[in-house]
Structure formats: C-alpha cells, structure tokens
Computed example of a mutant assay.
Amino acid sequence: MSYADNVVRWLRERLDRDPPLAQPRELTLALRVLALWRASVIVDAFVAHHGRVVLQGPFAGMAYVEGATEGALAPRLLGTYEAELHPYLLALAAEGLDRVVDVGSAEGYYAIGMALLARDTQVYAFDTAPKARAACAQMAALNGVADRVVIGETLKPEDLEAYGGPRSLVLMDVEGAEEELLRPDLSPALAHTHIIVEAHEVYRPGVAARLTERFAPTHHVTQLAMGGRTLPLPDWLMASNHLDQLLAVWEWRLGPTPWLVMRPKSLNA
C-alpha cells in the first residue's frame, strides 16, 4: 500500500465517524497529515529533477540517502533547512575546526555536511536510533568522508569533556534533552567550546532562557528564531502553486524551537 493510500484510508476512517472530523483539533491534524503527504510528493519531484543531492546552501552538492530519519527532507535537499544557522556554520568552518560533535545526528545532515565543509575536521555523530546511525554511515560513505566520521550511540554530559576546546563545535538537537546534556559543571571544557543547540521550547518551556543563563558567564549567546525563507527555489518549483512552494521549505515544527549560538568568551581574551 502506498503512502497516498494510507493517507486516504486514515481520512476515510475519520470521515466515517459520527460526527466526522468534528473538532478543530481533528481538522488541524488532518491538515498536517495532508501537508505531510504533499511534502512527500514534492520530494519525489525534486529527486526527478536533481537526484538526491543538496541543491544549495553550505552543504550544496552533498549526496543524500533515501529519506530523513527525523524531520523534513524537502528543505534539506533544497538547502533551505535551518537557514538561520548558515552564516554561523560558514564562519566556524572558515575559522578552522579540529572536531565537530553532532548530538542527535539523525541521518547526518550536519555531521556529513560539516565533514564536507571543513575538510580537515574530525566529526563525531551520536544518535540513539539504530536506523539513524545506519543512514549516517551510508551517507558518510556516499560522500567519501567515512574515514572522518565516527558514529556513536549515547553520550553522557561528562563525555563532552573529551571533545571540548576552542577549535571544537558541539551541534545539538535532542528533542528536549539539551538541558540535561549541556552541563558545564560536569564538562568544564564546554566553557571554551563553540555550541549551537536547538532549544525545544515546545517540549521544555523556558529552556532557552535557562541555557542562556547557564552559559552567559562563559559565552556570547545569540538566540535565533525561525524566519522566512529567502533562498531561491528551482524553476520547476517556482512554476508550481504557492502552497507547494511553502510546503517545500516547511520544516514540520510543532512549536517554537529557537537556536542558541554560543561563542566562548575565552577566545576574545
């Protein structure tokens, strides 16, 4: 049964209820299900035009595995994904990094992307999901960087001590566990480490403010909210309807997930 067939069956089951899709919450969920289906159609169209290769942005040219193990695939392939971080990633790569630690790496968008962007960098990718680790290994091989990407499963707060330092970057997207993992009291090396973390306010209200307060003594902290997408879309997508253009760059977020970009003050000393 195809994805479209599953969506139709899901909708039919709910339309057969009495009353059908009666609550606003149910209608919102139905809208999201249909949007996810349409996003998958857009991915198929992208692959037909360009193959499984990132089109633009810092990781342009990166070969991709068949699907994202977490989150939206279309904006990753388009190169619009989390575009707010692009200037910071490019700046850090230009300054020079010895290592990148990607915690919550999924299939490796950042792990493999940073290995390509910073060619002398050792990358450590951690994810608790076996499917994600397998996809990350596959993508490292596809892009010829498997020798510089070490894939692991779990990471404790104190483990970050081994990876910290002024030429290290910790990237973290762990669906709300960032508050438990980013503990400078357990890993003092974090005081001198570049950190970019997604703060999952949708799951942990106030977590961005708490992490900002925690790292303010040692870091310059910049909070970034998601904004509009201004990177150009390919011609075939520009010729499509406006809804498809919006869904192509939609990142599936359920609520606020600001990023904290934390640069160690010790580098200014």
Rank of each mutant, 00 (worst) to 15 (best):
A93S: 11
A94V: 09
E95Q: 15
G96K: 07
L97D: 05
L97K: 05
D98P: 06
R99S: 15
D102A: 09
V103I: 14
G104S: 06
G104E: 08
S105L: 03
A106L: 12
A106Y: 05
E107Q: 14
Y109E: 04
Y110I: 12
G113V: 10
M114Y: 00
A118S: 15
A118D: 05
R119I: 11
D120L: 04
D120N: 09
T121E: 02
Q122E: 15
Y124F: 15
F126G: 05
D127V: 13
A129I: 06
A129M: 10
P130D: 06
P130E: 06
K131G: 14
K131V: 15
A134P: 00
C136W: 00
A137R: 14
A137W: 01
Q138S: 05
M139D: 05
M139R: 08
A140E: 08
A140R: 05
L142W: 03
L142K: 10
N143W: 06
G144V: 15
G144Y: 03
V145K: 04
A146C: 02
D147Y: 00
R148S: 07
G152W: 04
G152H: 10
L155E: 04
L155Q: 01
P157I: 10
P157Q: 06
E158L: 02
E158V: 09
D159G: 06
L160F: 00
E161L: 12
Y163V: 12
Y163T: 08
Y163W: 14
P166M: 12
R167W: 02
R167P: 03
R167V: 03
R167I: 06
S168I: 14
L169C: 09
V170D: 01
V170T: 03
L171R: 06
L171P: 04
L171A: 03
M172C: 15
M172R: 00
D173T: 07
E178P: 07
E179C: 09
L181V: 13
L182C: 09
R183M: 10
P184S: 08
L186N: 02
S187R: 01
S187D: 06
A189S: 15
A189W: 00
A191I: 10
A191S: 12
H194P: 13
I196C: 08
I196T: 04
V197W: 01
E198Y: 00
Y203L: 15
G206N: 06
V207M: 12
V207T: 14
A208N: 03
A208S: 14
A209V: 09
R210S: 12
L211S: 00
E213Y: 00
A216P: 10
P217W: 07
H220P: 01
V221N: 01
V221M: 03
T222M: 12
T222V: 15
L224H: 02
L224I: 13
A225W: 04
A225G: 09
G227M: 13
G228H: 04
G228T: 14
G228W: 04
R229M: 10
L231K: 02
P232E: 02
P232G: 02
L233S: 06
P234S: 10
